[in-house]
Design a binder for these strands. Structure first.
Length: 923
RNA sequence: GCCUCCGUAGCUCAGGGGUAGAGCGCUCCCUUGGUAAGGGCGAGGUCAUGAGUUCAAAUCUCAUCGGAGGCUCCA
């Protein structure tokens, strides 16, 4: 065995052997328990970055661990290959999206292989291939037949820069989440999926082990609220106006109504004399982007329509206004305004001099609340007033039926037919069509006004390749006649599917990527589903992770899983609940961020000129090393623009202009120094090409080897948190693997060993196993590795001390290598072979934790006086209470403190796990 | 504004009612034929702050301060 650990020499070799022997091929075996581990598939952008490694290699370690524990593990990989970047590349660089995407996939496959992950490449699925999108289309048709997919008109998000509509989930703060360009609202006819039908079921996370944050985000996004719908009529009786409210107990306080400017009724009810003003306002609002409209603290603008409505609860005549603070996209797009008890309505009423009427009297107040005295709406608890026949009902702060007043009003509304109890959702149906080329075709045709599905036998509708990419941003499909012109009367749909549809079911395609008769093989599904552990980024909380849950539920309801369920029953597995959710356990990794850097600490001297110092001398010194009596500006360089330094000290920033003639002294940089060599503070931030803080995993692998990079990523971060990159720390895992290598390379010692030392190592080994198991179970990869480092340190020390015999060495090193295998698969395989183990270390059984072996024989009994440790006494680990207390009382420390008097109390705390037994003597 | 999560060594992180831990970094010493390296010794922490519960609080409770993420005219 060559002396030095040289990753390059072994990693390629083993990657090839693993592939040649199909070591990671996962096949159905009903005699073994299954484990479907899945990590989010990448978009083939062309280069694997460190984030992919961070997401995938710990998941790989965990999958390997499960495999060694006896599970039949499926850990597939593929590509989410449709999407805009490919199309942008086509437009800007004249490369066809097929070519661009496939070239990237080829490259990324190689990079993925360098990780040494146990991906089963036989199951690779690529969403942009006809074999794949045939089934995306097939699902679309099934959804259409079952009333889930429909074509409808709605106010949608239109991105001018991308020339396409976007789903609500893809718009953040009124901007397209990809480009950051503002979107506008536009009325368009589009394809939708009726995800709102599943809103209530999607709110139920029972049986799911998902991060709390994701559950909260999805719950917020769905935005269920309970309240009432009520129908107001215009005063002339000509029109009905539906409103939704969560506070039906304040209906009697409605003193005006507000419609969203986009509301259908606006044009119908506006009086002739107000028409001009109303139309002007609508035009103003229409050109506002979402961004402008969402600005905080903006003035409540609006105009009166001239029309009046009748409040159904008290027959009062109230004015109807339009205002942009009412959103057409929420509820019914119209509200009853209760200025006394809703802050927005209050502000609007004050701005436009509208009546404010108190209908909830706060209990605590002596005097009745007067509208004129209010400076804000009152939304606390109280008693209903001015609300005959509901006066006296008590409104708590509870929502919905839990509030007595609301409950009573709801009953009354239903009984009188003036309104109904209602549930409202913030969630809208999923807008699925895109005006783009590089996506799955929508298998629909139009003939006259009719929608005709493409027959199943003709699927897939293939994307034509011979298209021209126009810089206009329009989809080439819309002017590709052979594609859209089916025959003289029928025209094909030229919109394509949102890529999130393709990724909503990829976990099913992995089961049988070459299956041609169905989207997936039911026999495979019966065994593997559902996904047991899913890992990926939290940024998909309300997109992919919500969509795929919805998708799974629809497939279940329309019978797509029926054959799989039957197969399950044949194999004696109960299919109940197996198809309700796609992924049982979900964990999100954090993000690896760009490195933080301290700015230089400088001493600047010169002449003060107003706000800033004109420096004639700038010296970089050790952090905080300020000479006594220094009277210039000193501190960290927080920022530098040309020759102006922002120097901060204790939170105060001072400005220093370095004169061209100034002397700059940087001890670490020899020769003459310039102002440009001064380093300013660098914040932790996302890695991006423009910031130049991107870490290239290929270079790291080249330098340190894949195993070291894997271990560094797992050891140096809290996986679920992420953090700043700091390459210095790679030396820790590197040194560890070097040491392991050297221990194996050195071979068994020749001495006979010391039973006590060996027993100690055996104990530590089993304690280590327990920590690794716990760490992997909890995705705490860093603790699992830290514990192995500790064990290595202890073993190495014992070896040096000559306490280890040959037989024990073999046994222990063999165990150590098996424990290492999930984390550093290549070096473990090489060491395993050199130890004489059978191929492969990755198919060896995992080490069984033995509590008896992990037990300490003697431990330190801690004697505490008033809770402060004072002395230790070596005792048997299983020492009894009485004996321990006797020993403690007899100890020198206790005798000294007690001074002959009996203690007030003496408390025995038995040792557990890794803590020592203790006796606390209270004086 | 609301909702989550988090403040432990210089850095990145474990632990978590009962003696404060790891890796890196740092001091000093040794090796200089594993050498863009190895071995050894050591320093460094009122566990964000303040109160409470307890025989005992870094750990539990509450408040405050600081940080991260999410939602936000949601009727």
């Amino acid at each position: 065995m060559s002396a030095a650990y040289q990753p390059r020499a072994i990693e390629g070799k083993w990657q090839q052997k693993w592939e040649a022997t199909q070591l990671y091929r996962a096949t159905v075996d009903w005699d073994k328990p299954k484990h479907y581990a899945l990590t989010m598939l990448p978009y083939p952008s062309g280069d694997l970055h460190i984030g992919h490694w961070f997401a995938m290699t710990p998941s790989d370690a965990r999958a390997r661990w499960m495999r060694m524990k006896g599970y039949n593990v499926l850990f597939p990989m593929g590509f989410d290959a449709f999407g805009l970047p490919a199309e942008q590349a086509a437009i800007s660089r004249n490369i066809h999206p097929w070519k661009w995407t496939y070239a990237n996939i080829e490259r990324m496959r190689e990079q993925l292989r360098s990780m040494g992950a146990m991906f089963d490449w036989e199951r690779e699925a690529i969403s942009c291939t006809p074999e794949y999108y045939k089934w995306s289309e097939w699902f679309f048709k099934r959804f259409y037949e079952n009333g889930i997919a429909y074509r409808g008109s709605a106010l949608v998000n239109w991105s001018e820069s991308l020339q396409t509509v976007l789903a609500n989930e893809q718009v953040i703060d009124g901007k397209d989440e990809r480009t950051g360009q503002p979107v506008i609202h536009k009325m368009m006819e589009q394809w939708f999926f009726a995800i709102t039908k599943y809103a209530d079921e999607l709110l139920n996370f029972e049986g799911l082990d998902w991060p709390n944050a994701i559950r909260i985000m999805q719950t917020n996004w769905i935005g269920r609220s309970e309240g009432a719908r009520a129908t107001f009529h215009t005063a002339d009786g000509g029109h009905k106006i539906e409103i939704y409210t969560t506070r039906p107990d304040t209906l009697w306080g409605a003193t005006f109504m507000v419609l969203a400017p986009e509301h259908d009724l606006v044009s119908k009810i506006t009086t002739a004399e107000k028409r001009a003003a109303v139309e002007r306002y609508i035009d103003e609002v229409a050109v506002e982007t979402e961004v402008e409209r969402m600005k905080e603290h903006r003035e409540k603008t609006g105009v009166f329509t001239g029309a009046y409505a009748i409040n159904p609860v008290n027959e009062e005549r109230i004015p109807i206004w339009i205002a942009d603070y009412v959103m057409i996209t929420y509820g019914t797009g119209a509200i009853m305004a209760v200025p006394a008890h809703d802050q927005r309505d209050f502000e609007f009423a004050r701005a436009h001099d509208l009546e404010i009427r108190v209908v909830i009297q706060p209990e605590a107040m002596q005097e009745p609340l007067q509208a004129a005295d209010m400076d804000a709406a009152y939304d606390g608890p109280g008693t209903m007033v001015n609300s005959a026949p509901m006066d006296g009902s008590v409104s708590s702060q509870a929502k919905g039926r839990a509030n007595a007043a609301i409950s009573r009003v709801l009953d009354w509304l239903e009984a009188t037919g003036k309104g109904q109890e209602a549930v409202n959702y913030r969630l809208h149906d999923w807008l699925i069509s895109r005006q783009r080329y590089w996506g799955g075709p929508i298998p629909m045709m139009y003939e006259g006004g009719e929608i005709i599905p493409v027959p199943d036998a003709e699927l897939p509708v293939e994307l034509p390749e011979d298209v021209d990419f126009m810089p206009t941003g329009r989809s080439p499909l819309t002017y590709h006649e052979p594609f859209y012109k089916v025959d003289a009367t029928r025209r094909r749909e030229t919109d394509t599917l949102d890529t999130f549809m393709c990724s909503s079911w990829y976990q099913l395609r992995y089961l049988s990527p070459r299956c041609d008769s169905a989207p997936f093989d039911p026999e495979e599904a019966a065994y593997w589903l559902p996904v047991d552990v899913y890992t990926g980024g939290a940024e998909h909380a309300v997109m992919h992770l919500l969509y795929t849950r919805f998708f799974t539920k629809v497939l279940r309801d329309i019978g797509v899983y029926d054959d799989a369920a039957a197969a399950m029953r044949r194999h004696g597995r109960d299919p109940a609940g197996a198809f309700d959710e796609p992924m049982t356990v979900l964990r999100n990794q954090g993000q690896v961020l760009g490195a933080e850097r301290q700015g230089d600490f400088v001493l600047c001297s010169g002449a003060q000129a107003g706000e800033k110092l004109l420096a004639r001398r700038v010296e970089v010194v050790d952090w905080n090393a300020v000479p006594a009596g220094f009277d210039g500006v000193f501190g960290e360089i927080a920022h530098r623009t040309e020759n102006v330094l922002h120097v901060t000290m204790a939170g105060v920033t001072q400005f220093v202009e370095v004169l061209p003639s100034a002397e700059v002294i940087i001890p670490d940089i020899p020769g003459e120094n310039t102002v440009n060599q001064l380093r300013h503070h660098l914040d932790i931030q996302r890695m991006s090409k423009s910031k130049g803080n991107v870490v290239n995993p290929d270079e790291l692998v080249e330098q340190y080897g894949a195993d070291v990079v894997r271990c560094y990523l797992m050891f140096n971060f809290d996986w679920q948190k992420g953090g700043p990159w700091n390459e210095n720390n790679i030396k820790g895992p590197q040194g560890w693997l070097h040491d392991v290598w050297e221990i194996v390379a050195a071979g068994a010692p020749t001495g006979s060993g010391d039973p006590a030392a060996e027993r100690d190592i055996e104990r530590k080994l089993h304690q280590t196993i327990a920590v690794i198991d716990r760490g992997l179970e909890a995705f705490s990869f860093n603790t699992a590795i830290a514990e192995q480092m500790k064990f290595k340190n202890a073993f190495k020390a014992a070896l040096r001390a000559g306490g280890i015999g040959a037989g024990f060495w073999q046994e222990t090193v063999s165990a150590m290598i098996r424990l290492l295998a999930p984390f550093a698969p290549h070096i473990a395989e090489e060491c395993w072979e050199r130890l004489g183990g059978d191929y492969s270390v990755h198919t060896q059984p995992w080490l069984e934790y033995d509590a008896e072996k992990a037990r300490e024989d003697t431990v330190e009994l801690v004697v505490m006086i008033n809770g402060k440790p004072r002395e230790t006494i070596a005792v048997a680990a299983d020492i009894a209470r009485e004996q321990a207390q006797e020993l403690a009382l007899a100890s020198a420390a206790a005798q000294r403190s007690l001074g002959g008097k009996p203690p007030k109390r003496s408390i025995f705390i038995p040792g557990r796990n890794k803590t020592s037994p203790k006796v606390n003597i209270v004086l």
